[in-house]
């Protein structure tokens, strides 16, 4: 007769404790990213009567809204490209240049503060300095005899808003690109030099191509950063410059214009454009990063 040992019970499967650590992230991502996106997606196809409709999407293709998207894309693109170019030059200068070491620390600290300085306070700061009656405007006029408003500048315009955005775009570029520049090995530039290359040739063939994926990645981040900014634009221009976030805000804040369905459609359009920027980045960086696997 065989004696069978009692089967030992399988240890109960327990969710590992580590999951608790990432729980806040998962909860936030679901509550404030995934669910709202689904809600938008649904909302964009529901009319005022609660029925399924394409009217909201169709309404996006009116002149006013297309113009708003276009100016949003232009402002975001301009502030991202200028911010990336100026920020890259600054970061290269403080990290690779022969400048005093404390300057780097000072620029990095300032960048940390400035990249987070946005919204109504930033708008106010620019109105107080470069507004029609701003401090800098008046000093330029009285001391240097330069009337910037008469020469065509207007803070409440495309370039005014772009300039204001640059205040946080440039520092953000500096902060994000700095580690990538630190990652450029000294031996690469020395190897290029001993092979006869000038500094410019090193950057042209080696340095910038290596940085390129990081620059593209940051560029798409800067674009999204500007594209979604509402408080700075609203604080600066009120509703005089119709960019998409302001138009969207008008649809949902609860006055006579209100059309939540159109608001959802506008937001969906923004999601799509941001997603396009990210996809373009992913495709290009995957191609240029094939040697970095």
């Amino acid at each position: 007769m065989m004696i069978q040992a009692p089967a030992s019970p399988a240890p109960p499967r327990r969710l590992s404790f580590e999951w608790l650590g990432v729980a806040p992230f998962i909860i936030f991502a679901l509550m404030f990213l995934a669910f709202p996106t689904l809600y938008l997606l649904a909302g964009a196809f529901i009319g005022r009567d609660g029925q399924f409709t394409f009217d909201n999407i169709a309404a996006l293709f009116t002149d006013q809204i297309i113009a708003a998207y276009w100016i949003s894309i232009r402002i975001s693109g301009a502030s991202a490209i200028l911010g990336a170019a100026i920020g890259l030059a600054m970061a290269l200068a403080i990290i690779r240049g022969r400048l005093p070491a404390p300057l780097r620390a000072a620029v990095m600290t300032f960048s940390g503060v400035a990249s987070n300085f946005a919204g109504v306070p930033l708008a106010f700061a620019f109105i107080a300095t470069l507004g029609r009656l701003g401090l800098v405007t008046i000093i330029l006029k009285t001391v240097f005899g330069l009337d910037i408003y008469r020469s065509g500048f207007n803070l409440l315009s495309f370039w005014g808003l772009t300039l204001t955005y640059l205040y946080f775009q440039i520092p953000l570029m500096v902060l994000i690109i700095a580690p990538a520049i630190d990652g450029l090995k000294k031996e690469w530039s020395e190897a290029a030099q001993i092979l006869g290359a000038t500094p410019w040739q090193f950057w042209r063939y080696i340095g910038l191509p290596i940085l390129w994926p990081s620059v593209l990645g940051t560029l798409s981040l800067l674009f999204a950063n500007a594209f979604g900014a509402i408080a700075t634009a609203y604080g600066l221009t009120g509703s005089s410059l119709n960019i998409v976030p302001i138009l969207l805000y008008a649809q949902i804040r609860g006055d006579a214009l209100q059309n939540p369905g159109l608001g959802a459609a506008l937001a969906l359009g923004m999601v799509l454009i941001t997603a396009c920027a990210n996809i373009i980045y992913l495709v290009i960086s995957a191609r240029s990063e094939r040697w970095m696997k």
Partner: peptide
């Protein structure tokens, strides 16, 4: 007009 080989692999990674 000198040639040099470095300690760490200093090949250009993008080429």
């Amino acid at each position: 007009q000198l040639g040099m080989v470095f300690q760490a692999y200093a090949l250009f990674p993008n080429l």
